[in-house]
Design a protein around this nucleic acid. Structure first.
Lengths: 315, 315
DNA sequence: CGATCTTACGGGATTCGTAAACATA
DNA sequence: TATGTTTACGAATCCCGTAAGATCG
């Protein structure tokens, strides 16, 4: 236990020792160790010198453990076994047979394409434990900062000494309205075109709302309601309570026969999504694997929801 | 467990790893490992290559374990601890803080000076377990042959491929008789001088009896009784039931005011005592220590019992 | 720019293999 | 005498330390 005293064993020596204890023959044990017999002999001699006692009784006809050698034998077995188990455990992580990845991301992203990526990831690596924190942008970043999450996908560009944000994709905004709404006929509606109509807002601390407010300043939409969940927005729009403006990545919420969408090309109204991770520590093998699949799995054509309304944008 | 796969860790590497994990600084960990910093760096790099994954996240300002490194850390600690425990266990045996010695010897020797030697040995090395088999000569040898005993002290010269007998000491025989017995006045009594008197014999399978029979052939003593234990012989002699002839090393049994002893100088009547051990395996550290003390502790003047009757012989 | 890790490279110790000597049954 | 271990010695390898280079805060 002390302070790491000077033991100088190597796996080499210990395996040689175990081989000799097993075969009771320098010649055969040397072969098993892939060594010439004299080299093997020297190895054992060195080990005995280090331990300070003869571990084998030997003559040209007979090799066997001494009492002290038997004492050593059990320990050597345990050391080698522990080494192998240790290596195996790490290798399991390298081979993605074990591990854990935690992702923090915006609720507006968590229900869209992410489940597909995670499902594929889980099918490919069923032994990797997955955690998803679907929280608002600020919390996302906090999760990464504190280490609870390996990666965050959020709309905030953070560029601090500890955190690093890589552009992940851009997200254009769409008008959503109940079928038949007059705005749907207007080509390229501008912010002021929306002012006459009741508007369903997301709460002020959502990144969607913040982008929207910034793009419409100094205009104020005619807020009829403020809700927390996009699914709720959809319900309201479908019921004809009002219109709304949401990012392309959330359009899957609005797949409904009674709802139509239109791309908006307003200056500044483009949400940037970032992949955020800690600057000081690399990703674990498992996190790296998920990271790659997240990048590979992102929608190449933002603004083109799976099977729906017209309008397409590139980032 | 597999068949001892190719793990190539050394205590060196693992201790370096643990130092780095502890100090989180290459410079300080290198110092703790008594290595130059670049050499230390290379050591870690080699280890990471062997394991197949980066174990530390590092920048010039920050060093910390990766997820995989933490997995490795526990194992490395256990390996080093096991190594140290193993070495410590063997060292305990070398330092005679642990171990076991088994001696087999003739009953005629087991109660004499041996207890003193064992007592001194036990005082000096209280952690060494001692075993004594006080059995007849043939059994003594068998105990050594089978490995139950490390050493035997017996009267049989064995010179087989497996066993080796070193002369230990010689043991001259003494007449023992009750005070006032007529034989005591006769100088240098011969075998035939004993014929008129009742004789207390030991049983025929004792080495004492065999020596005696050989030396008196073809004469036959006038056997009044045959007993197994020397203590019994003593009792009989003290009671005046008869005389007997016993080796010097057993004379301590006959320390009694009513008994007197006389050396006998008959040709061939000298018992040789041998130290017997296996030829193929050396003595354990503990056995070797006892061996040396047995040799050192033997009576230099055989035939001169501690504080008694006259007569002295050298071997 | 200062502290710290990495790369480059030459020297030295360790370890290996071949060949010969040695020991034991 | 035959099998198997130890010794001798030259060669390849590995490991270390110094010095220069790169990087992060």
């Amino acid at each position: 236990m002390g302070q790491l005293s000077r033991v100088r064993f190597s796996a080499h020596q210990l395996r040689a020792f175990l081989h000799l204890a097993e075969f009771r023959s320098f010649t055969r044990a040397a072969a098993a160790s892939h060594l010439s017999q004299p080299a093997f002999s020297a190895l054992i001699r060195t080990l005995e010198t280090e331990v300070g006692v003869r571990l084998f009784d030997r003559s040209t006809r007979h090799v066997d453990l001494t009492v002290e050698g038997r004492e050593f034998h059990g320990g050597a077995q345990r050391v080698i076994a522990e080494m192998e188990a240790t290596l195996a455990n790490v290798r399991q992580r390298v081979d993605l047979k074990r591990g854990r990845v935690a992702v923090a991301l915006l609720p507006s992203l968590a229900a869209g394409w992410l489940p597909d990526v995670l499902a594929a990831f889980h099918t490919e690596f069923p032994d990797i434990e997955l955690a998803v924190y679907d929280v608002l942008s600020e919390n996302c970043i906090d999760h990464v900062r504190s280490g609870r999450a390996d990666i965050a996908i959020a709309a905030t560009r953070v560029d601090t000494p500890e955190l690093r944000a890589d552009p992940f994709q851009t997200d254009d905004f769409f008008l959503v309205a109940r079928r038949g709404h007059p705005l749907l006929d207007r080509p390229n509606p501008k912010p002021r075109d929306l002012l006459p109509f009741d508007f369903i807002h997301l709460s002020r601390n959502s990144s969607v709302r913040q982008y929207l407010d910034a793009a419409t300043l100094p205009l104020q939409m005619r807020t009829v309601m403020e809700v927390d969940q996009l699914a709720t927005v959809m319900g309201m729009v479908k019921a004809g309570l009002g219109i709304s403006v949401v990012p392309a990545l959330t359009l899957f919420h609005f797949q409904h026969p009674d709802i139509e969408t239109r791309p908006l090309r307003w200056p500044g109204l483009r949400r940037s999504i970032f992949l955020i991770r800690r600057r000081d520590k690399g990703l674990s093998v498992a996190a790296q694997a998920l990271y790659l699949r997240l990048v590979a799995g992102r929608q190449p054509e933002v603004g083109a929801p799976p099977s729906a309304t017209p309008g397409k944008r590139k980032h």
